[in-house]
Deep mutational scan, measured.
Amino acid sequence: SELMNSSKLIRMLEEDGWRLVRVTGSAHHFKHPKKPGLVTVPHPKKDLPIGTVKSIQKSAGL
């Protein structure tokens, strides 16, 4: 199965306009000026399962 580095996923979010608002432990929480909701990324993780990545991307509207 495909894995993604959390840094790469965070870069994709930031390029889309998401900004880090809070860190709780290894959970990084992002908000967007125009899009609704809060997106949480486990970080640092070298090997996020593709299912997790897809669900984060979906929440972020990517």
Rank of each mutant, 00 (worst) to 15 (best):
P33M: 07
Q57N: 05
D47R: 08
S59T: 12
K8I: 15
E14I: 11
S59Q: 15
R11A: 14
K54I: 13
A27K: 10
G37K: 05
R11P: 02
R19F: 15
I56T: 02
K31P: 01
Q57M: 15
R19N: 11
S7F: 12
S1N: 14
S6E: 02
S26N: 12
T52Q: 11
L62H: 04
R22T: 09
K34E: 13
V21G: 03
S55N: 11
K35S: 03
I56P: 01
K58V: 11
H28N: 10
S26M: 12
V41Y: 00
G61V: 02
S59G: 08
R11S: 14
M12S: 06
L9S: 01
K45W: 07
E14D: 05
D16Q: 05
G17V: 00
S6A: 06
T24V: 12
R19I: 15
L62Q: 04
V53N: 02
S7H: 14
K8N: 15
L20G: 03
F30I: 00
K45L: 08
T52D: 08
P49T: 09
S55R: 12
T40C: 12
T40M: 12
V21D: 07
L48K: 02
K34L: 12
E14R: 08
V53P: 01
P42S: 05
A27Y: 15
K35E: 02
P49W: 05
H43S: 03
L9V: 08
G17I: 00
P44S: 06
K31G: 07
I56A: 02
E15Q: 08
V23T: 08
Q57F: 15
E2A: 08
L48C: 02
S1K: 08
D47F: 13
R22N: 11
V39F: 01
V53D: 02
R11C: 11
H29Y: 09
K58G: 06
P42N: 05
G17R: 02
E15H: 10
K46Y: 13
A60V: 04
G25H: 14
F30P: 00
T24G: 09
G17L: 03
K8R: 13
A27E: 15
L13P: 00
K35D: 01
L48F: 05
L48H: 01
T52C: 11
H29L: 12
K34C: 14
H28F: 07
V41H: 00
R19L: 13
A27V: 10
V23Y: 06
S55W: 08
R22A: 13
L62N: 03
L9E: 01
R22L: 15
G51L: 13
I10C: 05
S1D: 15
N5C: 14
D47E: 12
L38R: 08
E14V: 10
I56F: 01
G17H: 04
V23R: 11
H28P: 01
W18I: 00
P33Y: 07
L9M: 10
I56E: 02
K8Q: 14
G25Q: 14
G25W: 08
E14K: 09
R19E: 12
G51D: 15
D47N: 14
G37V: 03
P36A: 09
P44R: 04
S6M: 03
S1I: 13
I10M: 05
E14T: 08
R11W: 11
M4I: 09
D47S: 12
R11Y: 08
L20Y: 02
L38E: 12
